[in-house]
Design a protein around this nucleic acid. Structure first.
Lengths: 65, 65
DNA sequence: CCAATTTGTAAAGCACACTTGACATAAGGT
DNA sequence: ACCTTATGTCAAGTGTGCTTTACAAATTGG
């Protein structure tokens, strides 16, 4: 699963901490998702899409599909 | 998190087992997701959307958002 | 250069996504 | 009534999403 979270966050000039707070997760979780260490849960994915005013499919794309 | 998986599956006249096989998860997992016992992982959500040829947002909707 | 902020990473622990195996109930066809 | 298929559910186990605490490296600004 790839994602363009880092780019979206950079556009807004938010720190990982600010995004984490807005998302309701820890900074380490934001960092791990950005670095591709794991995929977010579906609820967190929905909150991300809401925050960036786009679709989940605009942020994440499965590696093979 | 609500979902209309049961309705989508019924439209296609698929059994839980057939959907599970197509998804690559167990029948119990399909059943649990349909019954709202837990939310699928993001990869499984993407596979569901692909199978039903729609967006994740068309299948799932967060309870408060 | 120095100090503060930001990012990257690690370990231990809890909750949940998902598994296999098993069994009860429901629904359909003969 | 019987047999088969479909659904609902439970239990125990594995892997991972996410937490807290902590610290090192990188970046930014005086």
């Amino acid at each position: 699963m790839k994602n363009c979270l880092k780019a979206l966050r950079a556009e807004r000039r938010w720190t990982q901490q600010q995004l984490a707070d807005a998302l309701g997760v820890s900074r380490q979780t934001v960092n791990a998702i950005e670095k591709g260490k794991f995929d977010p849960s579906l609820p967190v994915a929905f909150r991300l899409a809401a925050l960036f005013a786009c679709r989940i499919e605009d942020i994440f794309s499965p590696n093979s599909g």
